[in-house]
Design a protein around this nucleic acid. Structure first.
Lengths: 213, 213
DNA sequence: GAATTAATTGAACGTACGTTTTATTAAAGA
DNA sequence: TCTTTAATAAAACGTACGTTCAATTAATTC
């Protein structure tokens, strides 16, 4: 046997990615063998190496694309307004929507970092940091404007990220809760957490507005 | 060679546990080999099997004892009062103190669940659930009494747990922040999150949550 | 329709793993 | 002191892993 009838590189590569995301999210990177992955795709293990030079290269590709997609999603969802509460709400809503839609990829990006080589780990962490910076900027500027009430911006940012990312640990789309309902609840918890001034728009919003660095 | 001079079963077992916690937390369960672990202990791999029947048995033992220790710690820290804010504050403070003190074990219990057999996984998850029930009870009763303002108890409980467990992801004891400072900040974020009635009770909080020495 | 390129198979390589077995020595008990 | 028990080493077993290589067939190009 050799090349099979109807074989197509693009389709095979897509099938590999899809199967890898599912298997790795379910069993963990180290627990999934190349033979197991190949079997799921319907191909021999050797065929995988036409698309990814090593197993780690496959993992890295999945992670990089996930992180880049997250940054892109936020770039597109980012609101024009400078109003802190609206910006924070947009960030949280986008984060939750993205993570629910891509549960498996997120799980991988959170759990399998230690299987990356040092250079690749650094690369992924840089992407993650630049995403977290977005939240910190919102919280910092909102605090400066008096819309939020925070002592420690970095600490609050970590708390918010942990809280809203935690959704994927327990939330299942088919349950009593809708995505919208969960998002609403998390939005209100977030606003309380950061001490957002409620309902009435803050009068002094524009007083101290500055451009971000 | 055979039994070595000064060898002692109890000391060896303790050394195995200690080395295993450190190595597994650092590299992951699957990435740590029995030979690597044995080398760290200063012993041959075969010697490990005198203390743990399999590699998974070792992992399970570490996890079970960690979860039981967590429940015991809360049992001892549980305040006599029924005052909701004080109870919640005690829970959060104990949780953070415990998790900072046992970073590596917590990391293992959170990350390596999928390496357990189904029965053992169920066992560990049962312990975890019974711990989370404690928090839910506090939030439910506090809400009924009007001390908290929550729509969805279960959802709020998950959010709080995720937030306060997240401390171990980034907190390092030797940094600008002290354990006490971090605990205080998380306490106030938690109280806001659950919509606790403020100020008067807040002072009560501070009085009731002195950290155990 | 011949030549070239794309896609895959099947077999193999070397290595590392968890675990078992057997032998051997140290310590404890009689 | 002699016997028993505790603690370990050393070697081996079978297996599964990531990866490579050569051969082979399908699709595309000229």
């Amino acid at each position: 046997m050799a090349r099979t009838a109807g074989s197509d590189g693009e389709r095979t590569e897509a099938a590999i990615r899809e199967a890898a995301v599912d298997l790795i999210a379910r069993h963990g990177y180290e627990a999934v063998s190349m033979r197991q992955l190949a079997a799921r795709v319907g191909v021999q293990a050797a065929a995988l190496y036409r698309y990814f030079t090593t197993k780690e290269d496959l993992l890295f590709t999945l992670m990089r694309e996930h992180m880049e997609a997250l940054l892109t999603a936020w770039d597109e969802a980012r609101p024009a307004t400078t109003e802190p509460v609206a910006r924070l709400a947009a960030f949280v809503a986008n984060h939750i929507a993205f993570h629910i839609e891509r549960r498996s990829q997120t799980h991988i990006s959170n759990m399998e970092l230690r299987s990356l080589s040092p250079e690749r780990l650094t690369f992924i962490l840089r992407l993650r940091t630049s995403y977290e910076k977005e939240l910190r900027a919102i919280l910092r500027e909102g605090t400066e404007e008096g819309a939020f009430d925070l002592d420690d911006i970095g600490l609050a940012a970590m708390a918010v990220i942990q809280m809203i990312t935690g959704v994927i640990v327990w939330f299942r789309p088919d349950e009593r809760l809708s995505v919208e309902g969960v998002t609403q609840t998390y939005l209100s918890m977030t606003m309380r957490l950061v001490g957002a001034t409620t309902n009435r728009e803050t009068q002094h919003v524009h007083a101290g507005t500055r451009l971000r660095a």
